[in-house]
Write a protein that binds this DNA or RNA. Structure first.
Lengths: 155, 155
DNA sequence: GGCTTACTACTCGGATACTGCTTGTCCGAGTTCAGGGGG
DNA sequence: CCCCCTGAACTCGGACAAGCAGTATCCGAGTAGTAAGCC
């Protein structure tokens, strides 16, 4: 039960794209920014494109660009784009198998175990959806020197 | 990012042990209850023993027994026992690698990305810790016939 | 000199191997119970 | 009749394979810029 490291890569890369200023930035530069594998980062960025968080510009001087402002991108958007299905607990309905299935073959009500786990996961998802990348960027902006350095490094 | 199915197995088995009445129940019977692989279920139950949620009685007529009442077992206890480390997001501190590392080699403050993800996970863990198995059992007790059937099946 | 055209370099995008964890299985150590033999 | 001993059956416990998702990599398709050639 470990989240893919692609999520961390995607989050930092989205922030870097914002600090870059809006112009398209190539995959190679974005990877070099954090010493990542360029080809694998590309895979993650393609997922972000598919989720319509990024737009890709092919050809020379192409690259990736934010599809919308950071204030319109939540943590849940990023996690969902990279991980796909964000459900942690998958109920296999084992309560209807084996001897328990003989007792109650057709589940008349929802599984209480599943319901409890879903409640907890909803709290997680709501917390993810409540935080936008703009808020994280605001934290980074408390040290403007870094933001400026990133900007020059990517331009 | 999928939770081990051992969590579902453990939750249902703990509830079954409660309905069994307190006497030790063998691993084979517990597995047959839901048509599970007995040997693999045993692996999960050993984790619960190590977490002190269950006690094991060796020898003939032995088995597993709840170490404490359901009202003192939370969902977080079970998830933590099976999954071990319950942190979903592992920050690799990539902000200090590559060219970004040249800008800020020594992180003076906590990583805002990590902090945001941890906040969301804390909401999840709190929601897990807030729900006990006794509350789930209360839902099941709304149909006493099933609880009785499980009791007789395990005795 | 200006326009067309072919070439090159660079980009994204999907198809292809490798690794580690989850899942599943097996066999051994230990304990309890039952039955038989002896006192 | 009671006690002891031996055996067997059953249990847990850890060590040993198979499958699959995550990880990493490579190569092809496409586009923009550039430079040369032609009008």
């Amino acid at each position: 039960m470990r989240m893919s490291k692609g999520v961390e890569w995607a989050l930092h890369t989205l922030l870097n794209l914002h600090m870059a200023g809006g112009g398209p930035v190539g995959n190679g530069q974005l990877a070099a920014m954090h010493g990542l594998s360029a080809t694998y980062l590309n895979k993650q960025l393609q997922l972000l494109v598919k989720a319509e968080l990024l737009t890709s510009i092919p050809g020379a001087h192409g690259g990736f660009r934010l599809a919308r402002g950071l204030e319109r991108i939540t943590l849940l958007d990023v996690v969902q784009a990279i991980e796909g299905d964000v459900r942690l607990f998958h109920c296999a309905e084992i309560r209807c198998c084996g001897r328990a299935g003989e007792i109650e073959p057709q589940p008349t009500e929802a599984c209480p175990v599943k319901a409890a786990m879903v409640r907890a996961e909803d709290a997680w998802r709501q917390a993810l959806a409540a935080q936008t990348l703009a808020e994280i960027q605001a934290e980074l902006d408390r040290r403007p020197a870094i933001a400026r350095a990133v900007h020059t490094a990517l331009n």
